[in-house]
Nucleic acid binder design. Sequence first.
DNA 1: CATTGGCACTCGGATTCATTGAGTGCCAGA
DNA 2: TCTGGCACTCAATGAATCCGAGTGCCAATG
Lengths: 340, 340
Amino acid sequence: MVEERKLAVLRAIVEDYVSTQEPVGSKSLVERHQLGVSPATVRNDMAALEEEGFITQPHTSAGRIPTDKGYRLFVDRLSQVKPLTAAERRAIASLLEGAIDLDDVVQRSVRLLAQLTRQVAIVQYPTLSRSTVRHLEVVPLGHARMLLVLILSTGRVEQRVVELPSEPDEERTADLRTRLNRTVVGERLVDACARLVVLPEEFEPGDRGPVAVLVAALVEAMSDHRSDERVAVGGTANLARFGDGFDTAIRPMLEALEEHVVLLKLLGEATSPSTVTVRIGHEGPYEELAATSVVATGYGPGDEALATLGIVGPTRMDYPGTMAAVRAVARYVSRILDEG
Amino acid sequence: MVEERKLAVLRAIVEDYVSTQEPVGSKSLVERHQLGVSPATVRNDMAALEEEGFITQPHTSAGRIPTDKGYRLFVDRLSQVKPLTAAERRAIASLLEGAIDLDDVVQRSVRLLAQLTRQVAIVQYPTLSRSTVRHLEVVPLGHARMLLVLILSTGRVEQRVVELPSEPDEERTADLRTRLNRTVVGERLVDACARLVVLPEEFEPGDRGPVAVLVAALVEAMSDHRSDERVAVGGTANLARFGDGFDTAIRPMLEALEEHVVLLKLLGEATSPSTVTVRIGHEGPYEELAATSVVATGYGPGDEALATLGIVGPTRMDYPGTMAAVRAVARYVSRILDEG
DNA sequence: CATTGGCACTCGGATTCATTGAGTGCCAGA
DNA sequence: TCTGGCACTCAATGAATCCGAGTGCCAATG
């Protein structure tokens, strides 16, 4: 028995099963692929593959389907990168070029990814932790209320309204604006936070109270939004194509899609845009989603992974194609962030 | 034949069908309700109701199910307002009290509505057209770029970055800020737009260019966001409970949920918070959603309908309970907007 | 005249049973 | 090591049957 052919058989099984969604038998295998051997030989290989846990039969007298372990081997060693078509590349470029701001980029990406892969797409909004503060504006609203507007290098704008113990006069406000900006502009969020918390000490004792209130709101805006990271979801209609295990598989999926925390955990740690992470079935963190796989990667300017994007779909999916699409979108988005 | 009893029969049919999800026959009807007549009599009534188009049989020798027309009659004349339980009232109050800003109110409402009705909930973000301008801030970002921050009476904040032909000096900026605020503060968005477009004429001919650029951005921010109204969606996992017509009904639903324009059309015109609109099956604007009903109502401060919220579910739903929940949430949200 | 009990009739859904065929494992032979 | 042959398994398919909930109609009744 040739080891190499055994792997070829596994590859053929995965490919056939993904495209037909039906258990594949030895006969149809030799018909559809040039394996150069008889069905009986393939059967021997299949028996061995099953022994090793790469494939399994749903019931005796049926063809084989890949196990999670089988998909894993396929993804790691058997699949070739499937280049996108020119049309697809153009579609990506033209759709993303038109974006007007950061949020728009994210929303377009999610739609794009869903269309390309025909799966449910998830795009995390860029994390703020790595970005820097571009400007901080303090706007008095009257009645001792202040609007804080935080503008970040990624283009994101955060705002908070805070209530002060008393209405500060115009001069104090201007002074505050200057000093706050001097403290945070150009700094990374983490550093900005660190410098902010000690800022009140530089003020007159009488002014420390109000300043502390402002600082607290700012620190909250910065760190709060770092943990409570937002995600965009698209292509949920593709769930309807899930196939057989409909209500068993779709229910937990719909629930997961409502919980952004769950989605973030699904996407996992942001990796470099050139590395695509594939998590197959049980490898994921949720037992209820054992029938789904995640294909994800990081993205961000300058090859630095600011956030994660990816897709979720049935374990039985076209991994090479999906991985290519995910990687391509991540690269394009990264490039756009580079320019912005 | 007593006309009144016929209606009682229809009511009983609707109630039973909604709770059991199965066609209801004459015998089980008299068992479960105190109609005081025999099955044979009920059969006569049912024949009449079918003749008039209020009920139908899926196939001969089966029980009856209500038609859209039957549900309509039920909703209009037969259903009683089902008061919420004390626990539900408390849940609404406590969940909504904790909201920190407008967006948070909307997001909490959508979750609340989904939980109460166990349907897919949709809440439109309050329309800006009726709200007034509270403050307008102009922040120079350097490199001839300006940040415009628009704060509205509803608490919503819109921002735009505009690029000017040249960097204005500090004095000009301050002057601009003052004059812009004098023009728009306190005005409704529509009026603010109207006054803005003629504003450049008040400036020196040389300054009109930059001012016009700013005005254009502001007008865009105001009117743009009026048409491109946003909606929040929640409780999609409830789609999994849709029942039988799963993939026929769920597919178009998932697609609709991705298209906010479609959702807005589904919700329809905002009505007064005290009026709950019910659109049953074919009464809605989309043929593909003929198996779904919409229960919606307007909400907003001071009984003025700023936006719409509601739920979408199968025609076979608990209308009285759903209507009560929708109305209750709309009232609570309106009250909160009143205070804000 | 509305109501009721009786009765024949319908027909979808469940049950059973036989058939089919794709697919397997195993073995002897090339 | 591969192959053809062969007996075996078992899900899926379809025909035949049964069951019963539910109906419509009618004659009898208060």
